[in-house]
């Protein structure tokens, strides 16, 4: 929204400089807060900064992280995907069903299922011009239902063999999930910032009509992006199944909201057209860190984590709103 009102001639340079500064704050705020909170809390809780604990935090956050990657793409495009949490759950269940056919199937089948869901969502949104919010909300309900219809309760994978190693093993002393998370975000950043597809996402998020006039194939890109988000959610589900050695039809509850929260805290604007993956990743780690701090305090129940992440989201949104108004307003 603010980007559409670009600068005009006279006071342009001054304005542009200030705008850059605000953009910098917006995209790096989460990272700064992450560092401050880590150091501050590290002083109180010596265990927090122990390498094993840091590894635990990042590993636990990696599943949400993969979802946030897809969600960020969708948000930057000006869309929204609420189906990711239940897609993760369905992914774990599909993994449990397909593991007998070998680990590659168990790993990829959920991603394919997620892409299919994304294809349906994306088609309804891009071609039938329905609101992303309501389409993916319906998908959330529908997928949740399918996951529960396939598995009443959690399914034990038994001896998962190499499939389990994918999410539990280590390379160079660091859990595979962390490698997967980092590689995924690095690839994502490459795609977002260095390809025509990535540029098109920003263009559509900034101004869809203008993007269309510039020759961007808006509908195709929208559908592809919802497919990507679904596939990543399905893949996250497969990896979670591998990690916990079970199919969990009720996993990922609230992930749709947490993934949006993480991205928004990380400076991705809900209005589209603005966002960085370093910001989004900082948002994910920040949420994971808060959870861990609350666990460290020990006397506090898990309920405090919800309260804290909600409050965090509120503060982030308010700061963003104030910043973006300064950035040109409506």
């Amino acid at each position: 929204m603010s980007d559409t009102a670009t600068t005009h001639a006279p006071a342009a340079r001054d304005h542009a400089r200030r705008e850059r500064l605000v953009a910098l704050v917006q995209s790096r705020l989460a990272l700064a807060v992450l560092i401050v909170v880590t150091l501050g809390a590290g002083a109180y809780f010596p265990n927090l900064l122990a390498p094993t604990n840091i590894e635990n935090i990042v590993t636990a956050a990696s599943f949400l992280g993969l979802i946030v990657l897809g969600q960020s793409f969708v948000l930057i495009m000006g869309g929204l995907d609420l189906s990711v949490g239940s897609m993760l759950a369905l992914g774990t269940v599909i993994s449990a069903y397909t593991l007998p056919y070998g680990w590659p199937v168990a790993l990829l089948a959920p991603a394919v299922a997620g892409a299919l869901v994304g294809l349906i969502d994306g088609t309804l949104i891009a071609r039938a011009k329905m609101a992303p919010f309501i389409v993916t909300l319906a998908a959330l309900l529908g997928i949740h239902g399918i996951a529960l219809a396939l598995a009443k309760q959690s399914m034990d994978l038994g001896d998962a063999g190499f499939f389990g190693t994918i999410a539990n093993g280590e390379i160079a002393g660091i859990n595979n999930m962390i490698w997967i998370l980092l590689i995924a975000f690095a690839l994502g950043a490459l795609v977002l910032n260095r390809t025509r597809y990535g540029m098109a996402l920003f263009a559509i998020g900034g101004n869809e009509d203008a993007a269309r006039m510039m020759g961007v194939r808006v509908e195709r890109i929208k559908i592809a992006t919802y497919m990507l988000s679904g596939a990543l959610a399905g893949l996250a589900g497969a990896l979670l199944a591998a990690r916990l050695n079970s199919g969990l039809p009720t996993a990922g509850e609230g992930y749709e909201l947490q993934s949006i929260a993480a991205a928004v805290v990380g400076g991705v604007l809900l209005t589209g057209g603005v966002g960085t993956l370093t910001g989004a990743l900082s948002g994910v780690l920040l949420l994971g860190l808060i959870q861990n701090i609350i666990n460290q305090i020990g006397t506090l129940s898990a309920s405090y984590q919800q309260l804290a992440s909600g409050a965090f989201l509120l503060v982030a949104v308010i700061i963003q709103s104030l910043l973006s108004h300064r950035r040109g307003g409506e």
């Binding site: 309920s303 919800q306 949104v317």
Partner: peptide
Amino acid sequence: LISGLALLVAGRG
């Protein structure tokens, strides 16, 4: 959407 989302999470917490 986002203010309601924040209150959804924080409210239940």
